[in-house]
Design a binder for these strands. Structure first.
Lengths: 141, 141
DNA sequence: TATTGTTATACTCTATAACTATA
DNA sequence: TATAGTTATAGAGTATAACAATA
């Protein structure tokens, strides 16, 4: 894959490689009849613990109105539970169910395999450096 | 914007930040009635010089069939020229027109402003390191 | 009055299938 | 037979507007 690397901006490279990562996730997750965003919801709940729907939306970068359908599907499949926050009854508290956590574990392995293939062209120290830089940028954006 | 940074994979961070970069590009380019991919086509032609449509597709990561409409719009606006490759008449050679190059120059400035804002949370040496790592990864994927 | 979640909807982006013209 | 470009179209993803319940 040849890219306009010489004059490409950082944002362009992020968008370009992000789309590629998404495509690879997509193909893998399709076997489980899930989209990348569904996996992102599961992953964010595993990281943050039970969280309000809006918090989840922020974490995965999906607008709250588009998060509704994502959660609906996961809820129908029994992978996440919906609860009402007693302190603020407007809020829905999402949490991983047992089956949700179990599936997430298996998905994570497959995702790591797919990503390893995509990042294989970069030596290990550089892969770690890239991950670190992306994490720090993500925390500020 | 809080992110599931701790357990996020590199691919997730790429997709997440790539989508954010695309959103910011989008808002800026909308003033010129262009989409991110249109700008990417202009940028790739500026980098590679006259190029076959399929080469452009590879560079910007858009499927050739979806590139057709992108080029149609740019061609209608007189920003890119379509020519036929004499050596292989199946091929369309795309090139920047004068107005295309002129508009690209102005767009590039605005894009750089938008991206600077997104990357502001990262110190300059890290921004350079990130750009370098992304470039090298892009060359291998 | 502001915020959380929600619906309906329109729009954009991406992918599946198949055609044409050249090679 | 294979490849470059194209069309049509369905599906997935995203954004605009507005609403009900609660704060």
């Amino acid at each position: 894959m040849i890219l306009a690397v010489e004059t490409a901006t950082t944002g362009f490279l992020l968008a370009r490689l992000g789309a590629e990562a998404r495509r690879r996730w997509s193909r893998m997750l399709a076997e489980h009849e899930l989209a990348p965003h569904h996996f992102a919801v599961l992953m964010s709940l595993d990281t943050a613990g039970p969280a309000h729907q809006q918090r989840v939306s922020d974490m995965i970068g999906v607008d709250p109105r588009n998060t509704v359908a994502l959660v609906d599907l996961l809820h129908r499949r029994g992978l996440v539970a919906r609860g009402v926050d007693a302190a603020d009854r407007r809020r829905t508290v999402l949490s991983l169910t047992g089956p949700g956590a179990e599936l997430l574990g298996r998905l994570r392995e497959q995702v790591e395999t797919v990503e390893a293939a995509m990042l294989a062209g970069l030596p290990e120290p550089d892969r770690r450096a890239l991950h670190d830089l992306l994490s720090r940028l993500a925390a500020t954006v």
